[in-house]
């Protein structure tokens, strides 16, 4: 037992290890690229070079240039900052809100539970993206509206997930033991039940990042999210669509970046799920 415990995690074998490691590497590299964007990117992402429009990929412009003569490679690198932020913040707010509501609803049950779960049912009855677009349309375009819309819509999945876990766990004996120590309901909920219930939500959050990333790109594509000239993969795809026959690189490289990051998050989610025995 001590021999196993003494061995650091990264040396141990566990189910899903390869998947997890590849996923973490992909996301880690993209994070690194985003952080080191000023060092890696050869050009300013918004600098327009009128003499080099729609240049095909070459040594000077590895991913080519767009219709304004901006370097696509630099823009893809800089855009990673925006898109990683979208994936992260777009998941954190729903996770926190949904987890809190789901925990309280599952623990207390009764009227509290019924009210929240009916709200969940109503929100889930609408198509995800349509509801988000509707909220952004009301609040006005921009990333802030996008986060608010996600928080208002995305929490329901987390609330449902965590509630089902809490329902199982709340009759566990360690809850009775905690009550016999004089612990309050909120202490039992958030210090004892939640840590035991959180694993499946973390795994779900990883796959949710894919959804949010694609959602963010779609919203920007539609002109409701990040505004030009900021570099963001969704916008870049949108801007490139008019030139898709002449300059495929304008859409292809940002598209591949979206694909790669989504792939990384998916692998992390699968690896974590397999390792921790969470079924989706």
């Amino acid at each position: 037992m001590t021999a196993i415990a003494a061995r650091p995690l990264y040396l141990r074998r566990f189910p899903g290890r390869t998947t997890l490691v590849v996923g973490l590497t992909v996301v880690g590299l993209m994070l690194l690229a985003a952080l080191a964007a000023p060092l890696i990117a050869p050009y300013d992402p918004v600098f327009q070079d009128g003499t080099a429009r729609l240049v095909a990929p070459s040594a000077a412009h590895p991913f080519g240039t767009d219709n304004f003569g901006r370097d696509v490679f630099s823009r893809v690198i800089w855009a990673a900052r925006v898109d990683l932020q979208i994936a992260f913040l777009g998941v954190v707010f729903p996770l926190v809100i949904g987890t809190t509501i789901g925990t309280v609803a599952g623990y207390f049950g009764g009227v509290v539970d019924a009210v929240f779960m009916r709200i969940v049912d109503v929100v889930l009855a609408f198509p995800y993206l349509v509801l988000i677009i509707a909220i952004i349309a009301i609040l006005g375009p921009g990333l802030k509206s996008f986060y608010i819309a996600l928080a208002l819509v995305g929490w329901v999945s987390y609330a449902r997930l965590i509630r089902s876990q809490i329902l199982i766990l709340k009759s566990a004996d360690f809850v009775l033991a905690a009550r016999s120590l004089g612990y309050s309901h909120s202490r039992i909920m958030f210090r004892h039940l939640l840590p035991n219930a959180l694993i499946s939500s973390i795994v779900f959050a990883m796959s949710d990042m894919v959804l949010v990333l694609l959602g963010g790109a779609s919203i920007s594509f539609l002109g409701l999210g990040v505004q030009p000239p900021t570099a963001e993969w969704g916008i870049m795809v949108a801007e490139g669509q008019g030139f898709i026959t002449q300059a495929l690189w304008m859409t292809m490289f940002p598209g591949l970046a979206i694909l790669l990051l989504s792939f990384g998050f998916s692998l992390i989610a699968d690896g974590l799920g397999e390792w921790l025995g969470v079924k989706e």
């Binding site: 360690f174 009775l176 033991a177 210090r191 004892h192 840590p195 035991n196």
Partner: peptide, 8 residues
């Protein structure tokens, strides 16, 4: 076993 918090 059941009355101790498994993750603390």
């Amino acid at each position: 076993t059941a009355h101790l918090d498994p993750v603390m």
